[in-house]
C-alpha cells in the first residue's frame, strides 16, 4: 500500500533508526498496514481550531522568575560518559 521504501528511509532518517534489508522489508509491510488504519481518519472532515482546546492558562499562572540551586554536575553526569564535567560526544563537524 501507500508506503514505499523511500518514505520509510526518510522516516528512519528523521527517527535516527535504521534497518537491514530484511528488517526493512518487514517494517515496510507493518507500516503499510498501520498507515492503512490511520487513513480511516481521512473520512472525518472537521477542521482543527487551536484556540478552542480550552487548555490555556492565564499569564498570572506562569512561574515566578526565581533562581534556585542547580544539581551537582557529577549527579547529572552519573549516567553518562563524561570528562572534565562535560558529556562526551564523538567529534561534531560544523
Amino acid at each position: 500500500m501507500a508506503v514505499d521504501m523511500k518514505t520509510i528511509e526518510h522516516l528512519c532518517g528523521l527517527s535516527k533508526l535504521s534497518y537491514d534489508e530484511k528488517g526493512m522489508e518487514k517494517v515496510m509491510g507493518e507500516m503499510g498496514d498501520i498507515i492503512d488504519l490511520m487513513d480511516e481518519i481521512k473520512d472525518f472532515d472537521l477542521e482543527y481550531d487551536d484556540t478552542k482546546d480550552g487548555n490555556e492558562i492565564r499569564f498570572s499562572d506562569t512561574r515566578q522568575d526565581v533562581a534556585e540551586g542547580s544539581f551537582a554536575p557529577e549527579k547529572l553526569l552519573a549516567n553518562a560518559e563524561n570528562t572534565d564535567g562535560c558529556y562526551v560526544v564523538p567529534k561534531v563537524v560544523e
Partner: peptide, 9 residues
Amino acid sequence: GTPNSRCCP
C-alpha cells in the same frame, strides 16, 4: 559558570 554547574534534570 563551570561546565554543567547551572543545570538540573
